[in-house]
Design a protein around this nucleic acid. Structure first.
Lengths: 240, 240
DNA sequence: GCCGATTTGTCCGTATGTATC
DNA sequence: CGATACATACGGACAAATCGG
């Protein structure tokens, strides 16, 4: 539902950059307001999105420079909610998910420290192995608040829990905080993952908030290093 | 140089959140415009920064919810240009930098593939080991365009090259694209780093652009897993 | 379930400041 | 110096979501 004008404009300009229609600089904001028949403010919002995607860079008094470089290797979803491997899991046809643990339990001190959920709260705790092209590349440890993610079943866990959350339950995912680390493998990693001799895994911890500002999910994804790749764009708004 | 009003307001509100003056919700935008004597637009820009910091989350028709959680362990600079370890290197007094290679060379096919610099261009290639509290935790491989980062010396490399770039040369760093991976260790990693038995390192590749839109630096930082921790906030602007 | 008040989201137009050329 | 282009800021209008009565 692209209801907003600025997002539509963003999409159009982004495609032009990807098609290398714009290579050096974008047209000036004034020219773009004329073309898209909108206010300069709207154009600026669109450009802002392109900046945060790492597609362009604004230069005061000069113009908006294109710094997009196409990625030859693989498609990955731009810097947002998914890591490369997660995107792969979602996009490929040749993926599989194996549920190795499906449990309902009450948060105790040990889980509270690990997740931040309060003691005594009811949760689902699920462990899943993700396969790409027949190789086991990720182990997910999911913790879901039972109050919010209702009626989860092992059958749903075999498919996409995110689909269930967003489409069936209609929960809106807004913010995800992530922490990246590299950790020594544990027995489960060793048992299930294709590690190619690595004794470490890339660990991504996700803390996911719904539109009520409630953190309803904590997930630890343990990635086999061979397939793990994550992209990010940082821009300086340093005025310190 | 906090010249802009919205950035000042952002700083004030951020501090209030950190001091737990605001815990559940922010005052409404209208109230804030009254307090700070500004337009609603300016307040919204300040809030936007807080959103991208993962401090708050806006809820349509309801208000702006605080989702800030203080981090007990360590200070890390919020999601921007530095990883945790880099921040540690910058902040701690007990840090050391050892230059193990300082060279000037011409980009050949091998380096072009690794960095994206064009063949024939003159660059500095530097290797440095970073210590925190006496432990070797990072090896940096820096590639700088000689045209832009002029007159680099081994002596400068022993200190902070970033200081030299920003303060002495007056180069403005705007955008940094990063790629995270986990790789098997090579001989240099094994020789220099405290790996605690890990046979992998956390690798961060930085591609840095100046205000002319020129990518003038490529750096590969190879982190010992024990000290590596990186934070990130993703927000959905999904209107697909 | 409806209505009205509140609150955030989008969009517009204008004015002024500042950096680049 | 003037023209151009981006940056900041203001004010107003309407839409859309939430909540309480």
């Amino acid at each position: 539902m692209p209801k907003s004008k600025y997002f539509d404009i963003y999409t159009v300009i982004r495609r032009r950059i990807e098609d290398e229609h714009y290579t050096d600089m974008l047209p000036s904001e004034n020219e773009l307001t004329l073309e898209f028949d909108c206010s300069r403010n709207t154009i600026r919002r669109a450009i802002q999105l392109l900046v945060s995607d790492g597609y362009v860079q604004s230069i005061h008094g000069k113009g908006v420079m294109v710094i997009y470089t196409p990625y030859s290797k693989e498609q990955y979803t731009l810097g947002k909610v998914e890591s490369f491997s997660e995107a792969a899991v979602r996009n490929r046809t040749d993926t599989k998910t194996q549920v190795i643990l499906f449990s309902e339990l009450t948060v105790d001190e040990r889980i509270r420290r690990r997740t931040g959920f309060e003691n005594g709260v009811q949760i689902y705790y699920i462990q899943r192995v993700r396969y790409i092209n027949g190789e086991a590349v990720i182990i997910d440890h999911n913790y879901f608040l039972k109050d919010i993610v209702k009626d989860l079943t092992e059958d749903i866990a075999k498919g996409s829990i995110y689909d269930y959350i967003e489409n069936t339950l209609g929960i809106n995912i807004v913010t995800t905080k992530r922490v990246f680390t590299v950790q020594k493998i544990n027995e489960k990693d060793e048992k299930y993952l294709n590690l190619n001799g690595c004794n470490c895994v890339a660990v991504v911890e996700n803390y996911t908030y719904n539109s009520d500002g409630i953190m309803f999910e904590v997930t630890q994804s343990r990635h086999s290093p061979t397939y793990f790749e994550f992209h990010d764009v940082a821009t300086r708004n340093n005025k310190i």
